[in-house]
Nucleic acid binder design. Structure first.
Length: 490
RNA sequence: GGGCCGUUAGCUCAGUCGGGAGAGCAGGGGACUUUUAAUCCCAAGGUCAUAGGUUCGAUCCCUAUACGGCCCA
């Protein structure tokens, strides 16, 4: 019976075990040591040293070198790899037969003594090995591993098994988020959860996903931002709240965009934009300290220094500098349109001066801001939820934090005047009516909340995926998302 | 949405100026009691992404499609 298809061979082993009354899918293994514990406790052993200590460990077989009466099996657990030095005289014939039948990919439990081989490899010499779970599919080749991007994203589980750097990136991601939570807690913020199904899309300008609630027989939108719910909590008297939220935007997929993404939004009563700058610097520093151990890093070959305080520059200043001429509300809309065409910025007839300036800024400046920079004084036209700048009603008290040419954070001194907010919603509705499918909805309940009185407050949003990209030197957002969205397989 | 590139064995890749395909690893058989990309011997493994077209003949040339990557909008 020449069964040579790897899947079939493994399947036959599984079936044979079941036939013999032994399950290839155990339900428990009590280990005493993770691989890293073995390394920490027995790292001092010299080549050829033999400890009498018995340890029990579990993991996945990632390599096997069979030499007849001795075999080397490399086992990987969540912490490290460790070698099993399997000998027939220690395991006995039956025990060694278990080793022989192992395939790369199998989960096993091993009990044995710790030693360091003559060649210097710290190893466990098992007296017993049990198969915990049979793997039916062969893992990728041991030397090159899995490199095909498509397969890596589609079968992230294999990517994680095979690629240490990938495990490290996600480990860093989890630590970053954990450090941010600790920092927020230390600053007195409450972590809250607000709805993901919104009857009215708001809190950002973006195309939403639409879904249907059967019982209520109505449309809901997957949130594009949690902002309006978090600010309702300010009205309710929670003075410092934040949510690490998944939000959804029905837009393109690119190296920087995924349809669902993770954001931190925080609101703090009785402070303003300056408070949000401090908070932002604190959060980024906490995250960087956690995974970099400092504030300097290198992103795609470019050195980045995250040491604060970061420079604060107005959008108009920066844009005028880059354009070599005044780019401000002092210019006519026609002049600004002319500038757009000079710099190859496509324009839309419905855009006012604010939008035109923002577009020129994005074209000429944003991508060139490598070191952390707070860009301030965004136009009112593109900031429907931010407080107006006193004396300059066409500008708002808003900043975006740009690092390596990308928006990492966005913050306002919040608009708390319900009458002003009502007017701005009306403008959004006009924009929607004239075809802007990213415009916000008119949220009457949010206005009602504001009319009860919202305390002065600063609000902040940080793109967690982009922050993780920066701190892990990842070129694509897909490299920091466990399961990035893709079209169904061909 | 546009442009360029890719898709060959489970994995990593060659290759065919158009005559119908190869390696390494993995897998199978054998040898080996200190290997670590173990080594050695033997045998096996493919709808060359999919669908059309050109041709005596297409995995290779052409067109379209699918999926992916990069760049641009």
């Amino acid at each position: 019976m020449p069964v040579e298809d790897p899947f079939a061979v493994r399947r036959a082993k599984r079936d044979a075990l079941i036939e013999s009354g032994e399950t290839p899918y155990k339900d428990r293994f009590d280990f005493t040591h993770r691989a890293s514990d073995v390394i920490a406790e027995y790292g001092h052993l010299e080549a050829g040293d033999d400890s009498a200590d018995v340890v029990a460990m579990a993991g996945r077989v990632v390599a096997k070198r069979d030499q007849g009466k001795v075999a080397f099996v490399v086992v990987r657990d969540a912490t490290e790899d460790i070698q099993l030095f399997c000998r027939v005289n220690v395991l006995g014939d039956d025990g060694y037969e278990v080793v022989r039948s192992l395939d790369v990919g199998d989960w096993i439990g091993a009990t044995g003594t710790v030693l360091r081989t003559r060649r210097g490899e710290l190893s466990v010499s098992p007296t017993e090995i049990v198969l915990l779970s049979k793997s039916l599919r062969p893992l990728p080749e041991k030397f090159h591993g899995l490199t095909d991007t498509e397969t890596r994203y589609r079968q992230r589980y294999v990517d994680l098994v095979m690629n240490r750097e990938v495990r490290d990136v996600f480990h860093a991601r989890f630590r970053i988020i954990s450090a941010i939570r600790r920092h927020m807690e230390s600053q007195g913020f409450l972590e809250v959860e607000t709805p993901m199904l919104h009857p009215i899309p708001g809190g950002a300008t973006a195309r939403p996903f639409v879904t249907h609630h059967n019982t209520l027989d109505m449309e809901f939108y997957l949130r594009i931002a949690p902002e309006l719910y978090l600010k309702r909590l300010l009205v309710g008297g929670f003075e410092r709240v934040y949510e690490i939220n998944r939000s959804f935007r029905n837009e393109g997929v690119s190296i920087r965009h995924n349809p669902e993404f993770t954001m931190l939004e925080a609101y703090q009563a009785f402070t303003n934009l300056d408070g949000m700058m401090d908070l932002t610097e604190g959060i980024v520093a906490a995250a960087a300290q956690e995974v970099l151990g400092g504030l300097r890093t290198s992103y795609q070959g470019v050195d980045v220094d995250l040491t604060g305080p970061w420079p604060r520059r107005t959008m108009i200043e920066l844009t005028s500098e880059a354009a070599g001429e005044d780019v401000s509300f002092g210019r006519t809309a026609d002049e600004l349109r002319e500038l757009c065409s000079t710099h190859g910025v496509p324009v839309d007839d419905s855009w006012g001066k604010g939008k035109l300036i923002t577009e020129i800024f994005e074209k000429l400046v944003e991508g060139n801001l490598v070191q952390p920079t707070f860009v301030t004084e965004y136009p009112l036209e593109t900031s429907p939820l931010a407080r107006k700048k006193p004396g300059q009603p066409e500008l708002t008290e808003r900043f975006e934090l740009i690092i390596t040419g990308r928006e990492i954070a966005n913050a306002f001194s919040e608009l708390i005047d319900p009458v002003d907010q009502r007017e701005r919603f009306a403008k959004q509705i006009e924009a929607k009516a004239s075809g802007d499918d990213e415009a916000m909805g008119y949220d009457e309940d949010y206005l009602r909340a504001m009319e009860y009185g919202m305390p002065p407050a600063g609000g902040l949003g940080i793109g967690i995926d982009r922050l993780v990209m920066l701190l892990t030197d990842s070129a694509s957002i897909r490299d920091v998302l466990l399961f990035p969205h893709m079209r169904p397989e061909a």
